[in-house]
Nucleic acid binder design. Structure first.
Lengths: 329, 329
DNA sequence: CTGAAAGCGCTTACAG
DNA sequence: CTGAAAGCGCTTACAG
């Protein structure tokens, strides 16, 4: 495979000059530039990025490490946006799958070290606290999505789950609902815990008694929600607040199978604002909206600001919004 | 950030020795190995992969270039398997999104050149023929999924779409169906064209007249299929053969909305054998099964065989199988 | 506008 | 079992 010396020789210039036309910035006499370009074309030359990265000390790549396989609806939206914003800013993305709970592959940090200028983690279990601390020690710019706790030296974007769930519940109360069932997330997840707190807070503030028989363990699962639908309807709830959209769709499906209609028979409020499944859905779900795109863009920009200008790591809590569509009344 | 010289100095050895303990293969006296390891740990040292790749001339990485954003059901299954098999064989994967029809990012080949030992493309438009030819010229091992045509020097896995559709149609005929509607794919896609040929072939062999009013343009789309359901049922077809599973699910949804049941009122056969949406589905779809996993594993193994042992590029056509589930009778 | 030279951080024969 | 040295293919001051 041709390298820079071959090109230089054939074009009758030094490799410095070849490098300059490749990099674009420095002035090269148009005629020699043209000649070099022609040789590059002819020889099918493509610079070795490992050498380039090593010599320049920067790769213009961001490593995106996800615990999700390629198809989580929340994080695939985030991944798309990360990819776009990186592109705009002249960076490429290298996606790596990592689950800290399995152990099939080597440490993604080791894998990418030297290949990327910064790390962006998304998804539960995509990174351990130890790994983050190691990254900080190594002074490698790092951003993470939604960890639930503030880690010094790390760029973070999160939403306030207590506030989001509180607003969601209040919204349902404002619509006149008093028996509001909830479909909860996985236990131990801080999102589940905080959303539960938000729900309880809203009830309290509106003097509605919390009833544990209205709490259904949905585990963030479509199928669990679908299977629980009958039971939830039997609880005489007039609305069900699902702690993610996936469960909301599962519930709607299950309710439909029992002959119930949404929102005529029961209102459904989701959480996340994902595009459900890979295809447009006819169900226009009312939901508590997390600004995935804004959060993603924020992380990328902050990361690149740290890489290029040494800006200190920042964090931001993003507000949620109620997106009122067709499943509530 | 510490480099190999820092480690060597602190451990009182040469960097050759540090390199040896890092690589693992060569014999290093246990006591010095231990000492070096301790220093590595202390200094939080992690070798620069760009330098390593450059020096060793190999990266032990496979670049996986997909035209799909992170959530196509067919290719996410493939991606998973690629990831696993690579892991088994000591390779890591770098995922890059590329659509040749857009042009936001730089050429993924340039992006990954020097970072990976081989390329694996998946998805329509993930790579152009020119790019493949360039890769061949550069002697970079390359594998592609389902291109529909044989390109010399490229490792390929595909299925026979004519045969698959023919068998699918025959299967329905054997069940007693005579009026078999089809929901076709995007025009111009070789899969669509070949599956259509297979359908016609099966009809012919069974002396059933082809009727163009039984052909519905589904475009591989869930929504299109859902919207066409009423019309298809009105055509008095007793079975509908969908050229992908996504449309089959869309049809079933649409039929359900019109009050029709599958398979009581109409049989439905899909094509692909994907896990529909990101969640388990209660619909157990009968389908023409493409062995995605086997194909993925085949590509990876062939690619690594070429990288490591200089094996010549191979190609294989995989057989499809009818997977009889609950939507046909 | 251009070239010679040093250096990026590793690996790997070679010699001992 | 270990070290000195060359080399991987680039970039980037420095000098002209």
């Amino acid at each position: 495979m041709a390298n820079i010396d071959d090109v230089a020789k054939k074009a009758g210039v030094s490799k410095s000059t070849v490098s300059r036309v490749l990099l674009g910035g420095n002035k090269v006499k148009p005629s020699t530039k043209e000649r070099v370009l022609k040789v590059i074309e002819e020889m099918n030359y493509s610079p070795n990025t490992a050498a380039r990265t090593l010599a320049a000390g920067k790769s213009h790549n961001i490593g995106v490490i996800s615990s999700y396989t390629l198809n989580d609806p929340f994080y695939s939206a985030a991944g798309e946006e990360i990819y776009h914003v990186c592109g705009e800013m002249g960076y490429s993305t290298l996606f790596v799958i990592n689950r800290t709970d399995k152990n099939e592959h080597k440490d993604p940090i080791a894998l990418l070290h030297g290949k990327v200028d910064g790390f962006l983690f998304m998804g539960d279990n995509s990174v351990t606290k130890e790994q983050l601390e190691k990254l900080t020690k190594m002074e490698l710019p790092t951003a993470v999505f939604k960890t639930g706790e503030w880690i010094p030296g790390i760029i973070q974007a999160d939403t306030d789950n207590i506030d989001g769930a509180c607003r969601g519940t209040e919204y349902l109360i404002r619509l006149g609902h008093r028996r509001i069932a909830i479909l909860t997330g996985k236990e131990n997840y801080y999102e589940s815990i905080d959303r539960m707190k938000g729900y309880q807070k809203a009830l309290e503030e509106n003097h509605i008694r919390f009833e544990s028989e209205l709490v259904f363990p949905g585990q963030f699962s479509y199928d669990k929600a679908r299977n629980l639908a009958k039971e939830i309807i039997a609880s005489r709830a007039t609305a069900v607040f699902c702690f993610n959209d996936v469960m909301a769709h599962g519930f709607i499906q299950g309710a439909g199978e029992c002959g119930y209609r949404v929102p005529e028979d029961i209102s459904v409020l989701g959480y996340d604002n994902i595009m459900f499944s890979n295809y447009d859905s006819y169900v226009h779900l009312s939901t508590v909206k997390q600004p995935i795109k804004e959060m993603s863009a924020y992380l990328v920009r902050a990361l690149i600001a740290q890489i290029e200008d040494g800006q200190p790591p920042v964090q931001k809590i993003f507000p949620t919004k109620i997106s009122e569509k067709e499943t509530t009344r």
